[in-house]
Design a protein around this nucleic acid. Sequence first.
RNA 1: CGGGGCGUAGCGCAGCCUGGUAGCGUACAUGCAUGGGGUGCAUGGGGUCGUGAGUUCGAAUCUCACCGUCCCGACCA
Length: 410
Amino acid sequence: MKASKFYISTFKEAPADAELVSHQLMIRAGLIKKLGSGLYTWMPMGLRVLKKIENIIREEMNQAGAIEILMPAIQPAELWKETGRWDLFGPQMLKISDRHDRSFCFGPTHEEVITDVVRNELNSYKQLPMNFYQIQMKFRDEIRPRFGVMRAREFLMKDAYSFHADMESLKHTYSLMFQAYNAIFTKIGLTFRAVQADNGAIGGDGSHEFHVLAESGEDEIVYDENSDFAANIEVAKNHPNKENLKTCRGIEVGHIFQLGTKYSDAMKATFIDESGKPSPMIMGCYGIGVSRIVAAAIEQNHDDNGIIFPQSISPFEVIITPIGYDKSPLVKKAVDNLYQSLIADGYDVLLDDRGLRPGVMFNEAELLGIPHRVTLSEKTLVENKYEYKNRSASAAVMIANDDLLNHLVS
RNA sequence: CGGGGCGUAGCGCAGCCUGGUAGCGUACAUGCAUGGGGUGCAUGGGGUCGUGAGUUCGAAUCUCACCGUCCCGACCA
């Protein structure tokens, strides 16, 4: 991508209403733009990050046997009345009416819709287990939206729902999802921890939260240095020797849950078992806050100069910052060649061909958090070298041209 | 919803206390200079001062109401 053909809009100063570092940097780097409280436009640069996270999630979910669907954002009240949640869910649910004065909500979650789909589609134990997922905008009318996309009202979520003939099958899929989640957050490159969470419906080890560790995290998580035990603060209260537990803060980016038959009972989602009798499907659900991951990743990876994106989710992997691109035909030729060859090698490259001053380009590249920067100029041409700067390194280094690819593997 | 801020140019702010024709920085446009870390100088365009009502000869400024937004607490990926 050439910068002159893309849209980049960065700011030196953070807006006054952004408190959290990740929020400030997301605005300053032009990733998002606020429309209203808890409502954000994903600008081109930010959308690239979001899409990369989406695709990592998609790959791992597919790998784990889940199948992608897309459900409506707007849902009829009748479904929610079946489970009783039309009244129970509370003011977090945004209720709306259509022209015929029928009641709907903007979906805060999709258990009702998926259960409705499945009760009509799946009839036999032979069709189970089944795990459907989607990546879609949710709306929750939060009491207090804050911290940018960290706690927005409209947010992108991956939600999956699995259906089973028996408990054993649920536990199997649950463990597949547990592994998939570990793979996803590892692939993205985050420091995270899976913790036991409260599970009202089933109890035991039926629910885990995935937290990105960060000082600014809204949740307190508790762990035992001498064992694998880690839990959210609610569960930890019941731990036998809770005096020895340590605490740290985390940002909840994922939650997996063994639901049981709560929704299938209420909505009569049954299947015919091997003996020919109807039986309620056993369910699990698995959520990831996709848009929140962007904020969490930045919260965990930044410095005074800006964002430091993990390469897996950076809007671009490499930025070329030529000096004299529009003045020196030699520089232009060398830069264009490098640009084309990196693209041919499969890299996501941004060529800053805007003819800006070097300082502006460098500062912007750092703010955006692009992991690899390559600078060419008449000076580097004379030496027949590239100047390479890793985003997390303190200074640039001169490298041999054919050594560049080695540096791009982070 | 309770407590506390803040609404003046795209963004960051001053002006308000003590009413009198709206300003600075940045961004944007143009020109000249500059050309390896948000460069310098000059010129220019851009504002229903959140909305409404009131007080006053006169309101960004004083009063009231409303709206928006942010922070602290109770819900959540």
